[in-house]
């Protein structure tokens, strides 16, 4: 009961902790052992695929409960380059949820992509990497990586590709996806602005005669503005999102990283 009304968020949600406190009202010497291996570190991610590019984005705040641990803790990573600086990487992974698991997952996927490169003499395709990531996640089906991952890159035809995952490896290729704390705030906005959901051609009729607004791929500039607007909205209404906006723009010429400020309150 005390924990229910506690002002300390660490006492409410799941947090990384060991506990072997003596049980109240238990026989002498009986102890209850608990292991809570997960923490939610907040934050949000977003990915949009364009005609010949993909933009992956995430805020850089790292929280636990109501505390801000860091104002610059990236969630978006280049994957599978030959070197540590990832200058020749062609894939981007974003992870949100439990940051430690995210970090571990990133390291593991990066190592696998690198091994693939050494063995095959070519970088891994997004499609292949996407399938491999699913396998990695499912292998830990009963002690999952507590992360919502999104993988972005360019497919074999050079079109933007976004793959989104649940924590146990269920995945899907999509045009766009929001993940993390503010996913529910951002996702309907994306439906509306990227996939033109609920938009119809004016004067095209009523009921079933209505014609949906034709979907056309957005330009890189339009998508960048959309991403910024989406995050500005999320920052306003979600306390776990803010500080910085990290964007990775994947084109055939490589990956460009952009860092923009977000509100810090």
């Amino acid at each position: 009961m005390a924990a229910m009304f506690s002002q300390n968020p660490l006492m409410n949600g799941p947090n990384y902790s060991f506990n072997d406190a003596p049980k109240v009202n238990a026989p002498e010497g009986a102890r209850q052992h608990r292991f809570d291996p997960y923490t939610d570190n907040g934050g949000s991610t977003l990915a949009i695929a364009g005609a010949d590019f993909t933009i992956m984005a995430g805020d850089t705040r790292h929280t636990s409960g109501y505390s801000i641990n860091s104002r610059y803790y990236p969630k978006v990573f280049k994957i599978g380059g030959t070197t540590a600086d990832q200058h020749d990487a062609n894939l981007v992974l974003s992870v949100v949820g439990f940051a430690a698991d995210g970090e571990a997952l990133k390291e593991r996927l990066d190592a696998i992509c690198k091994m693939y490169r050494y063995r095959h003499g070519k970088p891994m395709s997004v499609k292949a990497c996407a399938q491999r990531l699913s396998t990695i996640l499912y292998q830990k089906r009963f002690f999952p990586y507590y992360v919502y991952a999104i993988l972005g890159g360019l497919d074999e035809e050079g079109k933007g590709a976004v793959y989104s995952y649940d924590p146990v490896g269920s995945y899907e290729r999509e045009q766009c996806r929001a993940g993390g704390a503010a996913a529910s705030l951002i996702m309907p906005f994306l439906d509306n602005q990227v996939n033109f959901k609920n938009q119809y051609v004016p004067g095209s009729g009523e009921g079933h005669a209505l014609q949906e607004r034709e979907r056309k791929p957005l330009s890189r500039n339009e998508v960048e503005v959309l991403v910024k607007d989406a995050f500005d909205g999320a920052v306003e209404r979600h306390i776990e999102v803010g500080d910085g906006l990290q964007m990775m723009v994947i084109t055939k010429d490589g990956i460009e990283e952009i860092l923009l400020p977000l509100k810090k309150d």
Binding site: S184, L185, P188, A230, G233, E236
Partner: peptide, 11 residues
């Protein structure tokens, strides 16, 4: 509410 906040805040 969450979805509405996201929509309203951006539109």
């Amino acid at each position: 509410t969450e979805q509405l906040f996201g929509m309203c805040e951006s539109l």
